[in-house]
């Protein structure tokens, strides 16, 4: 409890005594002190995150409206999605959320090696997520399940007759599914790029207990990506 703040300050002064004077190197000239800079950056990130939430809200509204209008079609169509793969991806993303939180935990304690490894695991988990998603998409495309005009379910696999899903408004379900998961997947890719950049900087020893703002902000971003999936999974795959 009481060690948290004290240890931060201690690490700062111990490990980076030379750079930590009135004006450390990372402090931009228009801020008074490092706390102001950190708080400002974090607040900016939170504001950005709610824009992300509202961006996805549009798709959730579209989903809700069409589901309310055609509940039986949405129920039927959702059985085509493989909840096992979706569930696996949920666990993968949750684990990546944990590792990104751990990476922040460790850099706050000044442990650069643990930061590096946790970031690496996070990136790998994100890649696993995308690979699973790729196979899911391919299995759908194979049977003519696309977003929009190309929607033309056909063929039989694993005892499922795809042709019987050619019902009105199933197209809307899969369009919303592909666009939502597609945009979510795009955010995962952006996250991977960001974290790869962090990984390089972490390797070079740029981060410390005194300055880890980019790790913190990317972590927040990654958790939001996770949260959106937390809602997508039951709505699309389960019910």
């Amino acid at each position: 409890m009481s060690t948290t703040i004290a240890s931060t300050e201690h690490d700062t002064q111990g490990g980076h005594g030379a750079s930590h004077d009135d004006h450390p190197a990372f402090l931009q000239h228009h801020f008074v002190n490092a706390d102001q800079q950190f708080d400002a950056a974090k607040m900016g990130m939170w504001l950005f995150l709610i824009t992300e939430i509202l961006l996805f809200s549009g798709m959730f509204v579209a989903y809700t409206v069409y589901r309310a209008w055609h509940p039986e079609v949405f129920l039927e169509a959702s059985t085509l999605l493989d909840w096992k793969l979706g569930g696996l991806n949920t666990l993968v993303l949750l684990a990546s959320s944990l590792t990104v939180a751990l990476s922040i935990h460790y850099i706050q304690k000044g442990n650069q090696a643990a930061l590096f490894w946790n970031l690496l695991i996070t990136i790998l988990l994100a890649c696993v997520f995308l690979v699973v998603k790729y196979f899911e998409y391919m299995a759908k495309f194979e049977h003519g399940i696309f977003a929009g005009e190309g929607f033309d379910p056909h063929g039989v696999s694993h005892g499922v007759d795809y042709a019987k899903y050619n019902i009105p408004y199933a197209k809307q379900f899969f369009s919303i599914y592909f666009i939502m998961t597609g945009i979510h997947g795009f955010h995962v890719i952006v996250g991977i790029i960001l974290m790869t950049w962090l990984l390089v900087k972490a390797r070079l020893g740029h981060f410390s207990a005194a300055w880890y703002t980019p790790v913190e902000l990317t972590g927040l971003y990654w958790h939001i990506v996770d949260i959106i999936w937390i809602f997508l999974f039951p709505l699309m795959y389960l019910i």
Partner: peptide, 16 residues
């Protein structure tokens, strides 16, 4: 997101 959906409406005819 409206513009994204409109974009896909025109590109893919998603029918939203």
């Amino acid at each position: 997101i409206t513009m994204v959906l409109l974009f896909f409406e025109k590109m893919l005819h998603i029918g939203i």
